[in-house]
Simulated scan of single mutants.
Amino acid sequence: MLIADKKFEKLEELSNRDEYEGCIFLNCNLANGNFSTTRFIECEFVDCNLSNVLVSETSFREVSFKNCKMIGIQFDTCNQLLFEASFESCQLDHSVFFKMKLKQAHFMNCQLVEVDFSETDLSNSKLNGCDLSGTKFDHSNLEKADLTSSINLVIDPEINKINQAKIPFSQLPGLLAKYNLKIKKDS
């Protein structure tokens, strides 16, 4: 069933297998819900709790998430055809983006603690002002990615593509982490 241009507030359950187009979800607590096979097109989630939501074969096309708690979501199981989502001030800890094509994705001021970006294409993406503590980059493509003002960055340049990536000077030691060097600032 197509549901279009509707505003949902304080929703606690969402019917999966529907299609939502141009909808806004405000202050919804949908944690542990099942979004499997649901389609979201040009939708916006604001101040929602979406932690541990099942997204198997879920479609996200031009979807924005703002100030949302999204812990432990397995994005790699969603429908990746035309996947397009942006994240602003979201908590995405322990989420998985394994092998996804996230070219030009936007993660602004997000908490990305222990997120799995293994084999993910993040080329031309923006990860600005993000906490990347324990985030896994393994055979990932970060070419021309903008990581300006992100912190706790650890990327092995020998196994990841980082050509022309923008990395804050303060995070350069994270590119040498595997060598266990003690880098000191000149006085």
Score class of each variant (00 low, 15 high):
S123P: 00
E13F: 14
L92D: 03
K178N: 08
L181Q: 05
K185D: 08
N160S: 07
G174D: 05
S59R: 14
F25E: 00
L132H: 06
I3R: 06
N27H: 09
L132A: 06
L127H: 05
N67G: 04
D116H: 05
F40G: 00
F35H: 02
L14T: 11
L181E: 01
D131Y: 05
K185Y: 08
I162C: 08
N29M: 05
G174V: 10
N109T: 02
K136H: 09
F45D: 02
M100T: 05
L147P: 03
I151K: 11
Q171M: 13
L30D: 00
E13C: 13
N141W: 00
L181D: 07
K103S: 13
P173D: 12
L26W: 03
D116M: 09
Y20G: 04
N180F: 13
S56D: 14
C23V: 13
L142C: 07
H94W: 04
A105K: 02
R17E: 14
S150T: 08
N79A: 12
D138K: 14
V55G: 01
S95C: 08
T120H: 00
S187P: 04
N109C: 06
F169M: 15
D146P: 00
K161N: 08
L82S: 11
D47H: 12
I73S: 05
D131V: 15
I167E: 02
N124C: 14
E88I: 07
K166Y: 02
K10D: 07
I155A: 00
S133N: 14
M70Q: 10
E42H: 13
L30Q: 07
D5K: 13
R17C: 08
G129H: 02
K126D: 03
F83A: 11
L176A: 14
N32H: 12
E62P: 00
L11Q: 07
K185V: 13
K126V: 14
F98A: 08
I24Y: 01
G72M: 08
K66A: 06
K101D: 10
C23P: 02
P157L: 13
K166N: 13
C130Q: 00
N49T: 12
S56F: 08
D5R: 11
E84F: 03
D93M: 10
K69Y: 02
S150V: 01
P168C: 10
C48H: 03
N163I: 15
A145H: 04
K126C: 07
I183A: 09
E88Y: 11
L172H: 09
K136P: 03
K103M: 10
K136E: 02
L176D: 06
M70V: 06
E88P: 06
L147M: 13
K66F: 10
E19Q: 13
L50S: 12
N152K: 09
L50W: 04
E13V: 06
F97Q: 01
L122R: 08
